[in-house]
């Protein structure tokens, strides 16, 4: 298995805390690119153009009424998925090594 030391676990825990408890307080204002797209009138180019239907659109877990909980849940899922995807790519990222010699 992976040698995940205590400091790394702490880092993962901090990521989880940020995603669950801090993200619901995120500024709802448009981000830099959205602001530019609105100001320069090309935001409508994106309307109805989504190629994918994502399971958790806009970082809000469908079916949860409380906005706070919906965002926090989406955040927790995202953190776990992101960590898991990297760990799952181990075989791609690391060449089989012979460290015995």
């Amino acid at each position: 298995m992976f040698a995940v030391n205590k400091k790394l676990l702490a880092g993962l825990f901090i990521a989880l805390l940020v995603a669950v408890f801090l993200s619901p307080f995120a500024s709802p204002h448009p981000d830099g690119l959205e602001r530019v797209a609105e100001d320069l009138n090309f935001i409508q180019r994106a309307e109805g153009k989504e190629v994918l239907a994502s399971p958790i659109p806009d970082y809000s877990m469908p079916g949860i009424k409380s906005e706070f909980l919906a965002t926090g849940t989406a955040g927790a899922i995202g953190v776990v998925l992101t960590f898991g995807l990297i760990m799952g790519m181990k075989k791609i990222l690391v060449k089989k090594q012979d460290c015995s010699g």
Binding site: L8, G11, L12, I14, A15, L16, V18, A19, L22, S23, F25, A26, S27, P28, H29, D31, Y59, T71, G75, G78, V79, V80, T82, F83, G84, L85, I86, M87, L93
Partner: peptide, 15 residues
Amino acid sequence: LGVMAAFIFAAQMVN
């Protein structure tokens, strides 16, 4: 790498 990715994902949610 996993922890870094997880943290960046989380931090990107906090506008």
